[in-house]
């Protein structure tokens, strides 16, 4: 198996130890025939799944996808730690359990342990039949949490479909999932917008890694109702912030959500205005990086002071946010003067 992988540029061999009841449980050894960690960008993603089929029953099984940039960022510091990686036969090796749990099991370095190499050639088809192998309690919290997600009858099929879609696109956005998980709102997974929120957080990561220069357009839909008039466009293209202490609902990046919401409001008998203005992309990145799902936002561990922007209406088109007063004031300080106009 290791020889086979040498022929595959930028790919990774994944090998799995049989599930045993050893002191440290099972582990997965990740190795790849490259010397630069940057080549992990095209490496194989492995997750310790097992299937219910005859062939794979009670064994850990690999499937393949491409590592996304965020996963590389997650692994990079660990891989550069000498105590967490080693070289055998010109292959850079590390432990997948180690990568996720950041705990070094020195005994797992012995490659003479029994290995099994099971390969699923088409993960897209096989994902529907897999079941996550539950790692030893406490050893691998990230995978434990992922296992819990997949075991939820309300979310398992949807999450599998999400992974399936990401694999098709060529990347697994583990960091997006991790961010949601780190918020500590365990039952968010049961809400209708869970998968869409995962997708959006992954997209925001992609936007951030694409560069920090330039400006991003923001939009706000205001109805004729007096307390909707939080912003006013002046003739010189500047904005007047009538109420900088209130929460400010905005559509970001594209007009998609603003157009949708304006149409909805018009259908309800309202008149609307769509205000467009620009903010520096660095501001947009920071806002989205700080944002948390609206569901139980006040209890989210990533929102300790309650000032985080909220990702709202995840099932609607586009990218709407609710910005608490703190961020309303940051918008006021950061937007590009002269960029504001009414665009409907």
């Amino acid at each position: 198996m290791l020889k086979d992988t040498k022929m595959r540029f930028f790919t990774t061999i994944v090998s799995f130890i049989l599930m045993t009841n050893t002191l440290f449980g099972s582990d997965t050894i990740l190795s790849y025939p490259v010397k630069s960690v940057n080549q992990l960008r095209k490496a194989t993603i492995i997750l310790p799944y097992k299937t219910e089929g005859d062939i794979c029953k009670n064994k850990l099984v690999q499937f393949e996808g491409n590592l996304g940039q965020q996963l590389v960022d997650h692994f990079d510091p660990i891989l550069h730690n000498n105590s967490a990686s080693w070289e055998i036969d010109n292959h850079f090796c590390t432990s997948v359990t180690l990568l996720f749990s950041k705990v070094l099991f020195s005994s797992q370095r012995d490659l003479n342990e029994q290995l099994t190499f099971l390969h699923i050639p088409n993960p897209k088809e096989d994902l529907s039949n897999i079941e996550l192998a539950v790692p030893p309690p406490g050893d691998c919290p990230l995978l434990e949490a992922l296992a819990k997600d997949l075991a939820d009858p309300d979310i398992g099929p949807a999450l599998n479909a999400y992974l399936d879609e990401l694999l098709t696109e060529g990347s697994v956005r583990v960091k997006a999932w991790k961010k949601i998980n780190d918020g500590g709102i365990n039952d968010f997974i049961s809400t209708p917008g869970y998968i869409k929120t995962l997708e959006k957080v992954a997209k925001y990561h992609d936007e951030a890694t694409a560069g920090t220069t330039g400006n991003v357009k923001y939009y706000r839909v205001q109805t004729q109702h007096p307390d909707s008039k939080i912003l006013k466009v002046e003739t010189n293209g500047n904005l007047t912030f009538n109420k900088p202490n209130v929460s400010l609902n905005l559509s970001t990046t594209t007009r998609e959500h603003a157009d949708y919401y304006a149409a909805q409001k018009i259908a309800q008998g309202n008149t609307v205005e769509i205000i467009e203005f620009e903010v520096p992309k660095a501001f947009d990145i920071q806002m989205k990086k700080t944002a948390v799902p609206q569901h139980k936002a006040s209890q989210n561990l990533l929102n300790p002071d309650g000032t985080a922007p909220k990702i709202v209406d995840p099932l609607q088109p586009g990218d709407p946010f609710e910005l608490p007063g703190f961020w309303n004031q940051l918008v006021q300080q950061s937007y590009i003067p002269g960029s504001a106009k009414i665009v409907n």
Binding site: H295, K296, S298
Partner: peptide, 13 residues
């Protein structure tokens, strides 16, 4: 209460 407490989809949680 905060807006999210009036989203009926979340009440069960």
């Amino acid at each position: 209460a905060d807006v999210e407490y009036f989203i009926g989809e979340y009440w069960n949680s």
